[in-house]
Simulated assay, not measured.
Amino acid sequence: MLRQGLPKLVATDLDGTVVRSDATVSGFTHSVFERVRAAGVPIVGATGRGPRLEELSRIDLPHADLLVLGGGGRVLDLREPGLPRVLRDARLPGTTLAALVDALEQRLGPVKLLVEALDTPNSPIWGDDVTDWPYPDDVRVQPRAESLGHDIIKAFVRVGGDDDSDTLLRTARALVPAETAAFTHSGLGWVEITPPNVDKASGLAVVAEELGVDPADVLVFGDMPNDIPMFEWAGRRVAVANAHPEVIALADETTLSNDRDGVAVYLDGLLRRSR
Rank of each mutant, 00 (worst) to 15 (best):
V238L: 12
V130D: 07
L108M: 09
R273N: 15
S147P: 06
G127N: 06
L53S: 04
F221I: 15
D163G: 02
D132A: 12
R35M: 06
A99H: 13
N197Q: 10
E80I: 13
P143Q: 14
A264N: 01
A155G: 11
R170A: 07
A239W: 00
L114W: 14
V139E: 08
T131P: 00
N122G: 06
A239H: 01
P62F: 11
G16S: 09
D163M: 10
L53C: 01
T29S: 09
P215C: 13
A241N: 04
D227H: 03
L97R: 01
L92C: 10
D13H: 03
W190D: 01
H185G: 09
E246M: 07
A64R: 04
G73W: 00
F33Q: 08
S26Y: 13
V198D: 03
R37K: 09
T254H: 03
E246V: 02
V115C: 08
V10D: 04
G82H: 13
P62A: 12
L2T: 15
R273M: 15
L113A: 09
L9C: 13
D268M: 10
K154G: 06
V10P: 02
G40D: 15
I153N: 11
I153F: 15
N197M: 14
P134W: 05
H185F: 07
D227N: 06
D89K: 07
T96Q: 03
D132I: 03
W133K: 01
D77Y: 09
M1K: 14
A264D: 03
G203I: 08
V130K: 06
D128Q: 04
G109E: 02
A38L: 12
L168C: 03
S123K: 05
L56H: 08
R85D: 08
L169C: 09
P195A: 10
A103Q: 12
K200E: 05
L204S: 13
V213W: 06
L114N: 10
T24L: 05
E210L: 07
T120I: 11
P124N: 08
L69H: 06
W133V: 04
P42A: 06
I193E: 01
L87Y: 11
R52P: 03
V238D: 15
G127Y: 02
T194I: 00
L108Y: 00
G27M: 09
P42K: 08
D162L: 05
G161Q: 10
W233Y: 15
V220N: 10
G127D: 02
R88S: 11
A239S: 14
D261V: 11
I59T: 12
T254K: 07
T29G: 05
G71M: 06
K8T: 14
L78A: 10
A99P: 06
G72H: 11
V207F: 13
